[in-house]
Each structure stands twice: as C-alpha cells, then as structure tokens.
Write a protein that binds this DNA or RNA. Structure first.
Lengths: 178, 178
DNA sequence: CAAACCATGTAAGCTGTTACATGATTTC
DNA sequence: GAAATCATGTAACAGCTTACATGGTTTG
C-alpha cells in the first residue's frame, strides 16, 4: 500500500490530521489516490501500529476533537528507504485508446466527433493542472532544491497532457489528409 | 467494468476463447488489465448473462474442451454505444513523482542515482513497446483506416514514454547546472 | 525430466470508491 | 434555511492480483 508512504512523506513535512491529509490528496494530482476517508484513516491506524507515526488528541470546544499525527524516527527511516528504492515505471491508463481501437465501426463524422471530445477533455485537464500550479499552497519549499523538484513535478504532468494534445492533433490532421 | 467492453471489441473482431483473450490482454499495453483468469472468465459469464455474447463448446480429444465465444447483435450495438460515448481523460499514475517529492532527504549523489534508475526504467519500457510494435500480430487490419488507427494507438504509448524520457533528461541537466 | 502450453475455473486477499453516520458551526 | 466546513469513522461493494486446482501434450 504505497499510499502509506505518501502519507509518511506528508507527515515528514508537517504533522497533520486525517482530515487535513484528505484535503491534500483531494487536490493533488501526483498523489493520485482520491483521498477517501476509508483509505486514509485505515492507513493512519496501520502506520501507528507499525510504529511509524504517533498521534496526539486535541480536544476543541464546539468542534470535534482532532488526532494530530506526527512521524517517528522509525517513520523517517522507513520513508527514506522507500524514497531511494527502485522506482516503478509510469503507468498510462488511457481507456480512450481502447475506444479508438474499435472505432472503425464509426463513419468519418462520428470518428471526428469522438476525437474532438477527447481533445476537449485533455484540454480541460491541462487547464485544471495549470490553475493548480498557479494556486499552489501545498508545497514544503524547504530548500531551493526542493522548490526546484516540486516545480519539475508539476511540469511533468503538464507535459504529459501537452504531449497527449499534440498526439490527437496529429491524428486528426493525418485522418483528414486521407 | 470497462474490461467487458474491451472484450466485446475483441470478440467483434473474431470469436475467441477465454484463454485466447487472456493472451491478448497479456501482451497488449493499451488494454492495460493484466489479463488474469479471474477477471476474464467472470466477465465472459456476465456478458453471456447480459446477452452480448454466446458460446459454443468445442470438444477436443487429448486436450481440454474450448468455449468459443461469439458476439451477438446486441453485443455489437452495446459495443458501438460504448465506442461513441464521451471518452475519459487519460490517467497518469507515476508513483515515482511521489518519491521525488520527498527526495530532498537525499544528497546529490543519491538523488542522481534515483533519477538514473527511473530513466533506465522508462528506457526499458520504451524498448519493450518498440519491440511489441514490430512484432505486432494481434491487429485486425480490416480497412486502411483501421490500420492507420492502430498505428496511431501504438504511437501514442511510445510518445508518452519518449516524453517522459525528455522530462527526466531536462531535470538532470537543470540539477547539475545549479 | 522439467518447464511451458493448452484450457477451464475458484478462493483469498488487497486496493480503492461511494455512500452512510454523527453533529456542531459557518457561509451563502 | 440550505449547503459547505470541520472531524472522525464504518459498511458495502467494485476492481484487480496472486495463487491454487486439474491434467494431458509439447518443447527444450
């Protein structure tokens, strides 16, 4: 469950509650888990069991009490071990390509409409991503190198969307030319 | 369960057994499901229940009998409805970016090693993909337009990997310059 | 003679999503 | 007065993977 490592990373930056982590996951694109309660609260309990985090309960008048989770020394070394471990290859899940694989059933007009819809969908994602980059509050910015790395990370997703756009535009151009 | 539509597409091309479908899934990159028995045989039963496919049992001496699945008229129209439906945005799952997000824990040498490992991983995937493209047997090639589309589909994945490579090389270059 | 191939299927388990439950407070 | 925010958690289900079970045939 690699979401546990993502959580450890966040807690290594600053102690947080499950609720705060959930919000970070919700508007992070690289930490692609949806940020649902079930996974986060369960992962936090497991991390505590494993000794990688501890929590402190903060009672509040007139709102529910918080559990503030803090990473432990063991948690930090677990995180570091994970960070230096051999990275997985990126996964590209593009259901659209499966649709396109069987789209010879369609006439030229229908096919063109399908491509347009995908192009618009990708454009939308690209715009959302660009806005997120502008807004960005949730970055640690502890060193200049870290600022650079986080910049490169959001650039990565942007470039993936841009690349996808270029590809569709090429497909459409070549289709018309036939 | 979109794997059902992927199966319908394949059966729309040619009637097959579960075992044959499994092999196609295994070495297809765009149909990203791993191609495990459980999912495929279960999906086939459901498709039959829904009236989208029928099967014919072929007994064989000295090897287990086959169930050859064939798409029905209803299956074809279900497939077409899916093909023209609004496509989903592509999903990029890059756990490496999460690793990189917390890699300011590493010294320059360790960070560089991490980037190198990712670069090699992506290069490997790119090569595998290029070989698959050369070998390609599993394509319908029914019309020139379909040949073109299938070509564009494998080109899509290749370009995603190439784009990823370019990105890493840029990151490494900019890191050294600091 | 071990491994892989053909061919079907099931069981157990992990991962992930949606929805439910509670209840006070703040914003529109 | 409805909806969103804060804050925790659970239940039910969908999706997907690994491993198990069977057993003959072919390839290395």
């Amino acid at each position: 469950m690699s979401i546990k490592h993502a959580i450890l990373g966040l807690l290594g930056w600053k102690s947080s509650t499950g609720y705060e982590l959930k919000k970070i996951f919700e508007d992070s694109s690289i930490m692609y888990w949806s940020g649902n309660n079930n996974q986060i609260y369960k992962a936090l309990l497991q991390l505590k069991d494993e000794g990688f985090v501890t929590n402190e309960i903060q009672y509040q008048e007139s709102s529910p009490s918080k559990k503030i989770y803090t990473i432990t020394g063991e948690g930090v070394s677990e995180l570091k071990n994970w960070v230096v471990s051999s990275p997985d290859a990126p996964e590209f899940k593009k259901l659209f390509l499966v649709q396109l694989a069987w789209s010879d059933m369609l006439n030229n007009e229908e096919l063109n409409e399908l491509l347009t819809k995908y192009e618009n969908e990708v454009k939308m994602q690209l715009m959302l991503e660009q806005e997120k980059k502008k807004r960005r509050i949730n970055s640690p910015d502890r060193t200049s190198r870290e600022i650079f790395l986080w910049d490169m990370i959001s650039e990565n997703l942007l470039s993936s969307y841009r690349n996808e756009l270029k590809w569709i535009q090429m497909v459409r151009k070549d289709l018309v030319e036939d």
